[in-house]
Design a protein around this nucleic acid. Sequence first.
DNA 1: GCCCCGTACGTCAATCATGCTCATGGCCCG
DNA 2: CGGGCCATGAGCATGATTGACGTACGGGGC
Lengths: 236, 236
Amino acid sequence: MTSRADAEHLLVVDDEATVRELLSATLRFAGFRVSSAGTAAEAISAATAEPPDLVLLDVMLPDIDGFEVVRRLREQRTGGRGGPVPVLFLTARDRQADKVTGLSLGADDYVTKPFDLEELIARIRAILRRTGGSYTGEITVGALALDTEGHQVTRDGRPVKVSPTEFRLLRYLMENAGRVVTKAQILDRVWNYDFGGDASIVDTYISYLRRKVDIGEPRLIQTVHGVGYVLREPRQ
Amino acid sequence: MTSRADAEHLLVVDDEATVRELLSATLRFAGFRVSSAGTAAEAISAATAEPPDLVLLDVMLPDIDGFEVVRRLREQRTGGRGGPVPVLFLTARDRQADKVTGLSLGADDYVTKPFDLEELIARIRAILRRTGGSYTGEITVGALALDTEGHQVTRDGRPVKVSPTEFRLLRYLMENAGRVVTKAQILDRVWNYDFGGDASIVDTYISYLRRKVDIGEPRLIQTVHGVGYVLREPRQ
DNA sequence: GCCCCGTACGTCAATCATGCTCATGGCCCG
DNA sequence: CGGGCCATGAGCATGATTGACGTACGGGGC
């Protein structure tokens, strides 16, 4: 799944190496191709070398500010698909956010640090979808459909009401349909990274999901004893 | 959705880089192609290079005043569609407004800073519509219809009286029908960008709207717990 | 033209209602 | 027997609603 040649190409720009690496690793795992840069100058040359489909940009950089970077990127129309590169801003939660808030309404979006990685990936996909990428807002497995933009789940076309956590869990399972995911992976991706509780919460939520969305035959959410869970359509 | 080659082309002229970026990002997201300029001289050369369909012009520029810019733009008949370029003036709320009002130059319009972005986009579309664009002034979702030009809302054909803020909120929800929008997004787009208050005001206005326009079945304004709100027609 | 008043609107805070999250623990299956 | 399943309920976060207050605006009287 990682780094296919046709995968979307992201450019991560942040001066903190830790953040940069965390992001790069996560995004690569999520199936993107990722470059990174620690300064504005690096960012611009990287974008010139290989035009990204999306730039993740820390607003506060050591050399010049993020807005200036955006301007320069756009001057060179470095968008991987022809148009201006969309930019997702990374910003601290303080008042800097306000400025960016205004700035970021739309193709440009923003997230405040510390951010939730699932959330981040969702935003990235939303932007790519809007700017002509190949993502559709809908994932389908068997009779189940999940609309990420509308936050709606349907089974055989009928809407099913699910809570936010249930939604995130189901989305994760559907994104990884056919692949077994461990409880640890689920905890990492679906719950906040600072979640302190017990992993058995995953059992509980799997149970909730089964009751709500997996009541018909065939069963889609399957347990792999001692390993984890997998959502798949049994072979026909 | 962004920046198709056939999208309307706007030119943003403002000497404050922040405002310029704010506008550019927002308008790009709204589907326009956008150029920008920080001075009158830049504006004129940009308009010559690629004739815009509409100019957004700050009245107070460092080099020469906005009206002079308009005169020069029109001398060169730089309108993207043949006629004189329509201009949307950006002005402070104080005395400047009167001057612009007095101008009353046909297709032109003005907004006072601080403006809310939804309002701005609506005005832009209104002008483009008048000058030959393709936008219609009406949005419909289910039994609800909203006339962006006449500032009128009807439910099953019967008019509903809504306040200005209620109108902007409903318009935003209708423009994003089927997509969940967070309270933060609503605050960003529906309230002035310098609104400092609490996000709970959104709840309040949702409540107002429901009482006024969402009293029949099926309910169109739905709450997505922990995420935001969405206006949609339930599946049939 | 000026002032006064009433209405409408926007904002905030308090209260109430909802429903979500998560720990616990008993039972069952592999 | 360990791992998984799921019912239960406490505590908490979120949302809905309403009332109160301040202000802007418009109309009418002087």
